[in-house]
């Protein structure tokens, strides 16, 4: 899923404070799972902003609403009017949702309430970790199911580097060395012989390096 983190309230306030009528719009899928941008968090954020407005004696009106996903047209029917009535929307979706609103509502100002942080998993409640960078050319079949592109600080494809220490990455003891994890798992799978296969120079044209990506399913395309 996509993981996000709410921006600091001061930063949010400085974005919206010049408006009169702001709608905080939650997104109830990925960013709800990490408890940062779901409809419940949007409601809490909007009440925090109302408190801030009264402290600052600003006349700004802050309301909230939410949708299931801000990245698909079909979910917007119920909030279209509320969006059009607002003079700015503070979206607590990931960056995709924010841009989707900007495209759909060309005359409405939209701000991001979150920083989109990474593509990750819920390791345990309250702990999300990055797992994938959507490089467009998956190598997990060669790396025992652990991604060196997303999880190695140097995206070393033939790792580990010389900085791997007691299972940790050289950048920080708190970060697992992806290559230690790969070696552990190759061991557990009885596939250590595969370690010596050289990973070829990677084609990064499917990554962000190749420019904005687009994907079409011809048979269902409208």
């Amino acid at each position: 899923m996509i993981v996000g983190k709410q921006k600091p309230l001061d930063e949010i306030w400085s974005m919206i404070k010049s408006h009169k009528n702001v709608l905080v719009l939650g997104c109830n899928t990925c960013v709800a799972v990490c408890h940062e941008g779901g409809n419940k968090e949007a409601e809490i954020l909007s009440s925090l902003l109302r408190m801030r407005a009264s402290q600052e004696e600003s006349g700004i009106a802050v309301t909230n609403s939410g949708v299931e996903r801000q990245c698909e047209h079909e979910f917007f029917d119920s909030v279209k009017d509320a969006i059009e009535a607002a003079d700015a929307v503070l979206s607590t979706a990931c960056g995709i949702g924010v841009q989707f609103i900007a495209e759909k509502f060309p005359t409405t100002v939209v701000y991001p309430g979150l920083n989109t942080t990474f593509l990750g998993a819920v390791e345990k409640i309250g702990v999300m970790k990055e797992k994938c960078q959507a490089c467009g050319n998956c190598v997990l079949g060669e790396t025992a199911g652990i991604c060196p592109v997303a999880r190695c600080a140097k995206r070393v494809l033939n790792g580990p580097c010389g900085g791997s220490t007691k299972g940790s990455c050289e950048i920080n003891k708190e970060v697992d060395c992806a290559w230690q994890l790969i070696v552990n798992r190759l061991n557990a799978l009885g596939q250590m012989d595969r370690y010596e296969t050289l990973a070829p120079i990677k084609d990064w044209s499917t990554d962000r390096a190749g420019g904005p990506r687009k994907q079409i399913r011809e048979e269902i395309q409208e």
């Binding site: 140097k154 995206r155 010389g162």
Partner: peptide, 28 residues
């Protein structure tokens, strides 16, 4: 070489490239 991570140096806010890794540079 792959090089130390940039967080050790004077530009910790910079990007790193790592288009190739050290083995692939040897091959190159």
């Amino acid at each position: 070489l792959s090089g130390d991570h940039q967080s050790f140096g004077d530009c910790p806010n910079g990007q790193n490239v790592h288009d190739l890794d050290s083995m692939q540079l040897i091959q190159t």
